[in-house]
Nucleic acid binder design. Structure first.
Lengths: 194, 194
DNA sequence: AAAATAAGTCAACAGCTGTTGATTTACTTC
DNA sequence: GAAGTAAATCAACAGCTGTTGACTTATTTT
């Protein structure tokens, strides 16, 4: 046995995970329609047929990429309204735990494929159920839904502009990270009080 | 000659315009990759081959849909910084002239196809050149670029959420149009002063 | 060790993609 | 009215799409 040449052990869960990881990476930088199953299979060093076999098809794969059975809620971390602006600000400047970065990547995947007829409905349901729902409940009060919408709009707008439109100089050139966070925190707060 | 049955006159500019209009409508509600040339040709009641013939291909057609030779600048209307927040607020609630609505539709088309490898570069160039450029110049001052980015982020975020994510209750249920505009104006102003 | 089950491979499928060339039709000019 | 030109049509192309079935391996169970 030569350990240098990777001998592929027959492990169903491992290959399933490899496919999922490769798909996630692809969907993170391209839209649903522009990504081919053969691209994903190639990245995962796996036969194309296995994708349809394991996930029931492209749509099922995409659904599984976006599903998060382990993490119960997308917005379980900020407990009070006061924490929300700061939390969102840290989210957009990618300052925080790996768990938070994973959350922002989730948003990017959604934003990238939201205009695809096949993937669109999946994403829209997820946004309403797992994002706007908890966020609205957290904010509470009279116009909670409107506030939640505005916060999410800013969050997604920054995501679109920085990641998809490649406008990365949100922090400016001389401004440091803390100053940038504070600026965004202020903006999110304005969305709550406007 | 029967005027009820549409007799197709052989008019090159007319068919070109029909293709352009059909393409615009398709790209307004779907992504670049998910729209087929045969869909567009069908809407325009035109043979598919004419599209590649007149526009040089799908990419050329998309470029022409987004091009605006008649309107010189996307941001020529607001003349001073003070006018910007109110102008953007009216833009997002679709209150204004047809010219303004056309501008917002432009943004939606860009947002929808920004993640397609083929269309992406065209869109990114357009955003930098025709939107961020004039807007930054208009704002002026020290951190004009940062301000412009934040404004555009909010603008696009609202566009994504309301049009693509189908979250339409930005105005709420009981709030009227004027109140809604004022709210957005306040938010845009906050982005400038934060 | 033999049988049974699971995992992976291969080839091929219909269907759709954008694009091109040759051909036919309608309109314009002389 | 005939010749010439522009516009539209038709058919077909390679290439890619996701998906399926039959087949070959490796691993586990009996």
């Amino acid at each position: 046995m030569d350990p240098t040449t990777s001998i592929k052990k027959r492990d169903a869960v491992a290959t399933r995970a490899a496919i999922l990881a490769a798909a996630r990476q692809r969907f993170l930088s391209e839209s649903y329609d522009s990504v081919g199953l053969r691209d994903i299979a190639g990245d995962a060093r796996v036969d194309v047929a296995l994708i349809s076999r394991y996930f029931g098809g492209k749509e099922g794969l995409f659904r599984d990429v976006l599903s998060h059975d382990d993490k119960p809620d997308l917005f379980r971390e900020p407990r009070t309204i006061a924490e929300v602006p700061g939390f969102l600000a840290q989210l957009v400047v990618e300052d925080g735990s790996d768990d938070r970065q994973l959350r922002m990547e989730m948003f990017i995947i959604m934003l990238r494929s939201a205009s695809s007829p096949k993937a669109g409905q999946v994403i829209r349901d997820l946004v309403h159920l797992d994002v706007l729902g908890p966020l609205t409940e957290l904010i509470g009060g009279d116009q909670a839904e409107l506030r939640a919408n505005m916060l999410l709009a800013i969050l997604m707008g920054i995501g679109v502009l920085s990641t998809i439109m490649m406008v990365d100089n949100f922090g400016g050139t001389s401004t440091d990270r803390d100053e940038c966070i504070e600026r965004f925190r202020c903006l999110f707060e304005a969305a709550l009080t406007c």
